[in-house]
Design a protein around this nucleic acid. Sequence first.
DNA 1: GACCGCTTTTGGACCGTTCCAGAACGTACG
DNA 2: CGTACGTTCTGGAACGGTCCAAAAGCGGTC
Lengths: 334, 334
Amino acid sequence: MRPPTIRDVAERAGVSKSLVSLVLRGSDQVRAAKREAVLTAVDELGYRPNAAARSLSERRTRTVGVLLNDMRNPWFVDLLDGLNSRLHDNGLRTLLADGHLNRRLGEDLTRTFTELRVDGLIAVGTLPPSEALRTAAGRIPTVVAGAREPTLPHVDVVAGDDQHGARLATEHLIGLGHRRIAHIAGDGVVGALRRRSFETVMREHGLSDTAAVERGDLTEEGGYRATVRLLGIPERPTAILAFNDMACVGALSAAEELGLKVPRDLSLVGYDNTYVSRLRHLWLTTVDNASHDVGRRAAQCLLDRIAEPTRPGQVVLITPTLEIRGTTGPPPGH
Amino acid sequence: MRPPTIRDVAERAGVSKSLVSLVLRGSDQVRAAKREAVLTAVDELGYRPNAAARSLSERRTRTVGVLLNDMRNPWFVDLLDGLNSRLHDNGLRTLLADGHLNRRLGEDLTRTFTELRVDGLIAVGTLPPSEALRTAAGRIPTVVAGAREPTLPHVDVVAGDDQHGARLATEHLIGLGHRRIAHIAGDGVVGALRRRSFETVMREHGLSDTAAVERGDLTEEGGYRATVRLLGIPERPTAILAFNDMACVGALSAAEELGLKVPRDLSLVGYDNTYVSRLRHLWLTTVDNASHDVGRRAAQCLLDRIAEPTRPGQVVLITPTLEIRGTTGPPPGH
DNA sequence: GACCGCTTTTGGACCGTTCCAGAACGTACG
DNA sequence: CGTACGTTCTGGAACGGTCCAAAAGCGGTC
């Protein structure tokens, strides 16, 4: 009761296995009658080619592996969407693996994908630095998407322009009349970029003295705690730019608990335009990273790199936009 | 510059390829000295076995395919966690594929997994009914997790006990003193089960007359609209049981817009205990489906079914619990 | 009818593993 | 010393495809 092979099909259609192979790969060198015979045999037997055998012989898999950092925070869904559609157009399928789950198990996903001999690798989001990724990138064409690190020899990076995004958000707040603005900073290269950009813009407007930065993390909890600290200082900020939407939701909760009304008493800006920010009840003003474009460009980069594996790694930045919703307004008494 | 093969390793270590194979598969029939030689050769060459060749020869892949309905609503993350850890313990790796993305592309994921010859298939969440899944399930051991459909000949179903979950929630509301309780219903088998259970419990308490049901869908928007309708009727409900957390968030927004304070004027219960319900700012009372357990049991079912593919399909229900948070309280004037 | 050139079809090598039957090697025993 | 018997090791046949060189088929021409 094994699945039928190409030889079974050949026998049934009364031709050689080579001809079946030709038909299945869409050759036009086959007479219509035989093609027909092969196709009906395929149908009758319910034949499906064996991907392992095929890739062993072709020496490629037409598959790219996608390493997700953590599925719990679904900011990357649009990115995957863009990625997938572009790769699909070029005959490549994608397989996902979630890092968070497997890291806990001590399983190395790059190893899995290396053994599968995927044609390419996409790392989505900031992955914990690992020797494994470095060696994998040395063998398999690799692109980092939606993150700025790690930077490795022959690896492209496609991400939103964090500097520009943070600028958009900060200038929006300044434009509304805010002066005392705080930033809840994230970590890693992305965190540093957004933070520095915030500080630069504040300086450009002569607001360095009223700029505050509080370390948070990428979670709601972190945003909450940071906001409690920020709102505890004497001349408290009238606006906060959070590192991401999650932290922004935390900030929202903190503000409410302290009896502040958003945006009347406090303006908040998130980052990523996740669906959480779109929930009517939250309705966060946020920076949209154009993730779909990031995904598409990452796919293109990977295709180019597969064609020419040794070209120097490049950095592609996608311009984000500001999504103004309900959590920003003029400062109190303006 | 091809990746090294088992023969390269053998040559370097001065042994036959068969011996290398033995060492790599952990045989104890190998003398320590040779084992050592093989392992250092593996190391020096950076050898990684070729999964395609291995699975072609072994006639299995040690891989199970996971079909996700839609990643946009991450209720299934805990489920995957449980699934993955149990499968990993049994030497199986998992590969994910997101249905939503690929459906749009007209790509058939069951086809992909069939061609890969995965050892098993897990369908997570309610997938749109498809002939493809039916035929796939006929060839590959398959388990449905976190959904109640489709029911197919040799397919197990592992899910939360929706009947019990809806009962817990309804009785919680009744216990708080609510009489006029509404339900925002979802569709499919799961929707029907929760709805019927809600109606049954209301009847048991002699509250059939004050029970209302409004059709929603699984989105925030659907929950919002349904709630607007529910709160528009003369004797409006003092509590709403929503089909899921998303719909519940929509209900929350609607209540707020109509000037009702939750839970003072209106109690709300969600379903799924997603991380959205855990956001401090929302803090929804909700039903926890014990997804981690569902995942673990689904994995076990799959392992059993791989061992014995033709046994009759069984239905395993996991008992949910109620997670009481901030959106439920006694009715006004109680 | 032999020959040519074109299209269509085929057999067999190969891809990198596992698996199995049997070879080689020790060691103990009669 | 020959033999029997474990323990280690090896060659070659799968596994199910692709690819290529060569064979076969088929008008048309001389």
